[in-house]
């Protein structure tokens, strides 16, 4: 399914607003200026997602995963490759993080949580629907293993809203992906909402 240019622009605008809120929260939390950019927004089928991400992320990924339910339901994920995850944690905590220990995991969970909340909260407000979030979890696994959990046992045709995400802080830039996996019904509702905005 392909978005029209207008739909894509509106969606990008919406996400930028959401990320602006998230960046403000992170700046306040850490005490220094954090910016989050959205260079690219795409909607892909779940099968395309696997090959698309494989091109960008190799090996082990750190994924903050939150399930959301309600009239719009699905999986929301923030994915960083392992080096990106340690670098982001180092920058945000102002401490050198070489490996992801339990405390670093919690930091990543909180950061992912803020970002996913902001994004889905904005969608919820736009669509004026109530979304319930699960507790966020962090998975450290191979990319393919992570992605296959999203496919297995799901009968509904699923799509992924892939938001290329760039954290910018302290002269550094760390790339990642915010992925929102939706059933076709939820996606229709989302696009409808976007149409109304435009």
């Amino acid at each position: 399914m392909i978005l029209t240019d207008n739909q894509r622009d509106s969606l990008t605008e919406l996400i930028n607003i959401a990320f602006g809120r998230a960046a403000a929260s992170l700046s306040e939390l850490t005490g220094f200026r954090v910016l989050i950019n959205v260079p690219k927004v795409d909607i892909l089928s779940i099968n395309e997602l696997i090959s698309a991400l494989n091109g960008f992320i190799n090996g082990e990924v750190a994924t903050v995963h939150q399930i959301f339910t309600g009239q719009v339901a699905g999986d929301a994920l923030l994915m960083l490759d392992y080096d990106g995850a340690t670098a982001l944690t180092s920058l945000l905590t102002d401490e050198e993080v070489k490996r992801i220990d339990v405390s670093s995991k919690e930091v990543l969970i909180e950061v992912g949580n803020i970002l996913l909340n902001a994004c889905l909260g904005t969608f919820g407000n736009m669509l004026q629907v109530h979304i319930t979030f699960s507790v966020p979890r962090l998975h450290l696994s191979q990319l393919n293993d992570m992605l296959s959990t999203l496919v297995i046992g799901k009968e509904e045709i699923r799509y992924a809203l892939v938001i290329t995400t760039r954290f910018r802080l302290k002269d550094s830039e760390i790339g990642g992906y915010l992925v929102i996996v939706l059933g076709v019904g939820s996606l229709d509702r989302l696009i409808e909402g976007i149409e109304k905005l435009g």
Binding site: L29, T30, Q66, T93, S103, S104, E106, V107, I109, E110, N113, N117, G121, G124, H130, I131, T132, F133, S134, V135, P136
Partner: peptide, 14 residues
């Protein structure tokens, strides 16, 4: 925020 439906994790580090 929680009253508006959002979940928050508060890490020890922050």
């Amino acid at each position: 925020q929680a009253l508006e439906g959002q979940v928050y994790t508060l890490s020890h580090r922050f």
